[in-house]
Amino acid sequence: MNTDTMIFLIRNMVPFMIPLTIVALGGMFSERSGVVNIALEGIMVFGASFGIFFIYFVPDLMSPQLMILAAMGIAIISGVLFSWLHAYASINLKANQTISGTALNLFAFAFHDFLARLITKTGTEGVSFKNVFRIEKIPFFGDIPVLGDLFFKNVYLSTFIGLGILVVASFVLYKTRFGLRLRACGEHPHAADSVGINVNRMRYWGVLISGALAGLGGLVLIIPTTVEYTGTVSGYGFLALAVLIFGQWKPSKIFLAAAFFGLMQVISNSSGLAFFTSLGINKYFYQIVPYLTTLIVLTFTSSKSASPKAAGEPYDQGKR
């Protein structure tokens, strides 16, 4: 395999890998606190909606990089607010978390359509935006051979923010008191409660963080991959759930899992590259690859699933 192909694969892995990592980390915070969050897809749609609306309505107010930061902030806030519904239903009302999550998923698509038709100038659900957020080349770093081509040319700010989130997330989860308490609430909430931890509050934190990250992830996925947002993230929220499970609810493994899924996605769409055609393998094989490898890997890893023990169960103080 020549370097060009390598560079292509790695470069194109990033638009999949970064949003998947961010969203799966969000799912991790929620599930580690004991609340299953299958609403990731819906929250992504919701967060991306508001981020894109922001870009749509204030196009020339500020420099592109500042604008994308502001849009990310808005995506995060809207993600938090939206996930509040899930938190309220599954923590205060002790509702079934799967049903609550599904409700959010269904709601987000419809809400985007409704809102977009109401407020865009065209009155349509597709919101077009000019992608001015790509950074052609980062000074100095872009000149490093190979590495510069890989990571410092034609990049998005979100790539570095995503990596930053990964570091912060693993630090918070393992090295802070907050992280320890959060994990305790997901494993054995009664034990946590007995030493004075407010389980409901910790779970709220878990769900709201997942909302923030999923909202951000939605925007980060949309920006580099289309020129118009139509209120769909094409199932990447559910793929992030798979990444979460595949990554065993651990930040570093989630990152590897996201990279793996990202690479598989790229390979399945790159059968036309000279390198792959030269291998003489049937083109359909490449399209099967992501699913086949997922099946194989899950077969070997599922037996030692490390899912948080209390995930999915509403906390009931009286139940022992």
């Binding site: 292509f8 194109n12 094409s234 996605q265 769409n269």
Partner: peptide, 11 residues
């Protein structure tokens, strides 16, 4: 629209 098509076209 899908990130997958974007990748294919980039290829």
């Amino acid at each position: 629209p899908d990130a997958a098509h974007q990748t294919k076209a980039a290829g």
